[in-house]
Amino acid sequence: MTARRYPVPIAVEHGKTYYWCACGQSNTPPFCDGSHQGTSVRPVAYTAPRDKIVFFCGCKKTGQPPVCDGRHKDL
């Protein structure tokens, strides 16, 4: 499933953990809202190494979850 065509830039905070939605069903993309319940899909934890902008994958095809690796360009 392709949730979004493009990555989602998010300003992350050093030391904070974010949970990226891997199922594509979340109502709060790119983050998990628990919509995966009852499936084998689990969110991916990302702990920010520093304050910065992270491009979280929106298409769910990345080879480096949860960050975008550009694979959306081939969809």
Rank of each mutant, 00 (worst) to 15 (best):
M1G: 15
A3H: 13
R4T: 01
R5G: 07
Y6T: 12
P7Y: 06
V8E: 02
V12I: 06
E13H: 14
E13C: 01
H14N: 14
H14A: 15
H14D: 14
H14K: 15
H14W: 04
H14G: 10
G15A: 05
T17N: 05
T17P: 03
T17Q: 09
W20F: 04
C21D: 14
C21N: 06
C23E: 04
C23M: 03
C23V: 03
G24E: 06
S26P: 05
S26T: 15
N27W: 04
N27M: 11
N27Y: 01
N27V: 07
P30K: 03
C32R: 05
C32N: 06
D33G: 02
H36R: 12
H36D: 10
G38F: 13
T39L: 09
T39S: 15
T39R: 07
S40Q: 11
V41K: 06
V41T: 15
R42G: 00
R42L: 14
P43N: 09
P43S: 10
V44I: 11
A45N: 01
A45E: 08
A45C: 00
Y46A: 01
A48W: 03
A48D: 04
A48R: 04
A48M: 02
P49R: 00
P49S: 07
I53P: 00
V54H: 06
V54G: 04
V54C: 07
V54K: 05
F55D: 11
F55V: 02
F56A: 07
F56P: 02
C57V: 10
G58M: 07
C59V: 03
C59H: 09
C59M: 05
K61E: 10
K61C: 01
G63H: 10
G63I: 03
Q64K: 08
Q64H: 12
P65W: 03
P65G: 02
P65Y: 05
P66E: 00
P66V: 01
P66W: 00
D69Y: 09
D69R: 10
G70W: 07
G70L: 06
G70H: 07
G70E: 01
H72C: 02
K73I: 09
K73L: 14
D74Y: 14
D74M: 08
D74K: 13
D74G: 11
L75W: 12
